[in-house]
């Protein structure tokens, strides 16, 4: 599965970056979400896959017994998922606001706002 998951991650990255490069606001948001999934899966895969053995210390034991999944990437991803939600919400609202104010879905029409004289 490691190989397969690596390929899936690659596809998600491709889709994410392709969408982020688009000019349509909504597509950029979708791209961000893809990138979030891709990054999470990358970290998860790099922590090595352990099938069906969560990082728990079983009742009655003092320490964890192999095999169990690597806990650190999981902790990283867990917060990343929630933070990703916050970022998504922010991005969605930001783009929505931009759309309202500029009246266009085209990112290129946003460019004048941060041009420096």
């Amino acid at each position: 599965m490691t190989l397969l998951l690596a390929i899936v991650t690659g596809i998600l990255f491709t889709a994410g970056f392709y969408l982020v490069l688009r000019r349509s606001l909504v597509k950029v948001i979708f791209g961000l979400m893809f990138l979030g999934h891709a990054a999470n899966l990358l970290i998860f895969n790099i922590g090595r896959l352990t099938k069906g053995a969560p990082a728990f210390i079983l009742e009655g034991n003092q320490t964890a017994v192999e095999p169990y999944a690597e806990p650190i990437p999981q902790a990283l991803i867990l917060t990343a998922i929630v933070i990703g939600f916050g970022v998504q919400a922010f991005a969605i609202v930001l783009f929505k606001k931009a759309y309202q104010m500029i009246g266009s879905d085209d990112i290129h029409s946003l460019k004048s706002t941060d041009r420096i004289a």
């Binding site: 929630v82 939600f85 916050g86 919400a89 969605i92 609202v93």
Partner: peptide
């Protein structure tokens, strides 16, 4: 915090 954040976002939107 998570409840607060999520609801704040949802309610505002």
């Amino acid at each position: 915090v998570v409840i607060g954040i999520t609801l704040k976002i949802l309610f505002t939107i």
